[in-house]
């Protein structure tokens, strides 16, 4: 298989210039994700308004796949309602893991990440940001709020 199936131009572009990179202070929800395989970590901060994800920022260290995935996710979920985000989360998970998955939603650019299916060692890299987003929203739904950073 051609390695460019994994490293498509859109992925390399998002890796080189990640969108929505940074931190929201203050934020309404946050979560930290780890990939123990490579020691990478990803932090997400979110702002929510009227059950919509109005803003999202991420930062951390990661490989091209995890940075591009987080950057593309941030674009895809900005402005979406929480049920829409949840539906995307499920679709993307299927895209990364199920062969020949036919998406039930338009995934747009995110389809470019489908190449990870053929690289099982890299599925975790692509899905880390989505799992972290999911965790942040669940914690928010459970009433947890970010601890205010004084730095």
């Amino acid at each position: 298989m051609d390695i460019r199936e994994l490293y498509r131009d859109v992925i390399l572009d998002h890796n080189r210039s990640p969108r929505n990179f940074g931190r929201l202070e203050p934020a309404d929800a946050e979560a930290l994700g780890h990939n123990p395989l490579c020691g990478d970590s990803l932090s997400l901060t979110l702002r929510l308004a009227n059950d919509r994800l109005s803003e999202i920022r991420f930062n951390g260290q990661g490989c091209a796949i995890s940075v591009a995935s987080a950057s593309m996710m941030s674009e895809a979920v900005s402005g979406k309602s929480l049920p829409e985000v949840e539906a995307l989360y499920r679709e993307v998970h299927a895209l990364f893991t199920e062969p020949a998955h036919v998406p039930a939603l338009p995934l747009g650019k995110l389809m470019a990440l489908g190449g990870v299916r053929e690289f099982p060692a890299r599925v975790k890299c692509a899905s880390l940001c989505w799992h972290t987003l999911h965790a942040a929203l669940q914690r928010h739904a459970a009433g947890e709020r970010p601890t205010v950073s004084t730095e």
């Binding site: 490293y7 990478d40 490989c63 690289f119 060692a121 890299r122 890299c125």
Partner: peptide
């Protein structure tokens, strides 16, 4: 990233 080096 080293991980990308490893995959390629």
């Amino acid at each position: 990233h080293p991980h990308d080096i490893g995959t390629i």
